[in-house]
């Protein structure tokens, strides 16, 4: 049984579909990453799961019980769905300890306070029980927010871009910490992000949203290796797109043909090549118009046959003005145009 199941969930604002018939489920434990750009509907989907908004069509099931349908929305306080907000949403008038104890009000005072202290200890903030949110750093508020949510033992935790305001180093550290804590407590999570590499890192299952539609869902490696559409491929990293035509089972590009097994002879096709699937060496096929550092790689801009391609190549490659180009089949895909 899934902790969370979405069945053809739709949400409209002023007749425009913000979410259009989304069906998804999560494993009982593990992380479902929702990846999409701003306006893709991922935060709305999270709010629907939390019960903060009603849905207009479809159903949401939590632990085998129906939680949302067009006729009925179970109140958020009755769902046992935890949520960690983008701005962390700590109660500004309560100490860190009181924030964590807030969700435990059914317990006796002594038990509640002890549980709050234990959670602070667990997230490395022992001794900060009396600190107020404005006295905590960004990383500390994020830890308190996570502890506050997990303390209530939710059946699933929703994380709405919880690290977006933090710098790269702290972000990686907190991400690791959060994933470890979720795993220790055996709690399933839905993790919303617009960062493809973050989504690939955290996900046990990855769902790609765009324009309110689910482009693809599956294991992160499968999704990366077998994109369902050009848009799904582009969601996970920089790609080159080239219009072509299928001839004898192949679609031609300036840098060689790509196999097109499922397309009919003569069909128009779009060839998608991941930037990191392009291998360069000194040669004469294309002009190298630019080569600049790009994180762990260098970003190369190639010009050939009136087209411009981008490639991610090992940094400090010695390539000269002109290069030969090879496409790696694992990162090249052909779709019907």
């Amino acid at each position: 049984m899934s902790a969370l199941e979405l069945s053809r969930v739709s949400r409209f604002y002023h007749d425009a579909a913000v979410l259009d018939s989304i069906s998804l489920d999560t494993p009982t434990a593990g992380v479902l990453a929702l990846l999409g750009p701003s306006g893709s509907g991922k935060s709305t989907l999270l709010r629907l799961i939390a019960g903060l908004e009603p849905l207009d069509a479809g159903e949401i099931w939590l632990g085998g019980e129906i939680a949302s349908s067009p006729s009925r929305t179970l109140a958020p306080e009755l769902r046992r769905v935890g949520m960690v907000f983008q701005d962390h949403a700590l109660f500004p008038h309560m100490s860190a300890g009181a924030n964590i104890a807030f969700g435990l009000h059914q317990l006796g005072r002594a038990t509640r306070d002890a549980a709050a202290r234990a959670w602070l200890d667990r997230v490395g903030l022992a001794g900060r029980a009396d600190s107020f949110p404005h006295e905590l750093s960004g990383g500390e508020t994020q830890r308190v927010a996570l502890a506050r949510t997990l303390a209530t033992q939710p059946r699933i935790v929703l994380l709405d871009e919880p690290f977006s305001g933090l710098d790269q180093v702290l972000r990686a550290e907190l991400r690791g910490f959060t994933l470890a804590t979720l795993a220790e407590t055996n709690t399933g999570a839905v993790f919303v992000t617009h960062d493809a590499s973050e989504a690939l890192t955290v996900a046990d299952k990855l769902a790609i949203l765009r324009g309110g539609r689910l482009l693809q869902a599956g294991a992160p490696r499968d999704t990366y290796d077998h994109p369902a559409s050009p848009a799904a491929a582009a969601s996970l990293g920089p790609v080159n797109a080239f219009s072509s035509r299928v001839e004898r089972g192949f679609a031609a590009t300036p840098f060689g043909a790509v196999t097109a097994p499922n397309l009919t002879e003569g069909a128009h096709a779009t060839v998608i090549v991941r930037a990191e699937a392009i291998v360069l060496r000194p040669g004469a096929m294309a002009r190298l118009s630019s080569l600049r550092p790009h994180g762990a790689h260098d970003l190369a801009i190639l010009e050939a046959d009136g087209t411009v391609w981008q490639a991610l190549v090992p940094s400090r490659s010695e390539l000269g003005d002109h290069v030969d180009v090879t496409l790696q089949p694992s990162g090249a895909f052909v779709f019907p145009a």
């Binding site: 939390a50 949520m83 807030f102």
Partner: peptide
């Protein structure tokens, strides 16, 4: 702050408790 009320709801607080413990003090 924007999500304060939603946070209290997901932590199990009903309407009256949110009013008395969150909204009015803030």
């Amino acid at each position: 702050p924007a999500h304060i009320n939603a946070a209290a709801a997901t932590l199990g607080a009903g309407s009256w408790r949110r009013l008395v413990q969150i909204d009015l003090p803030i």
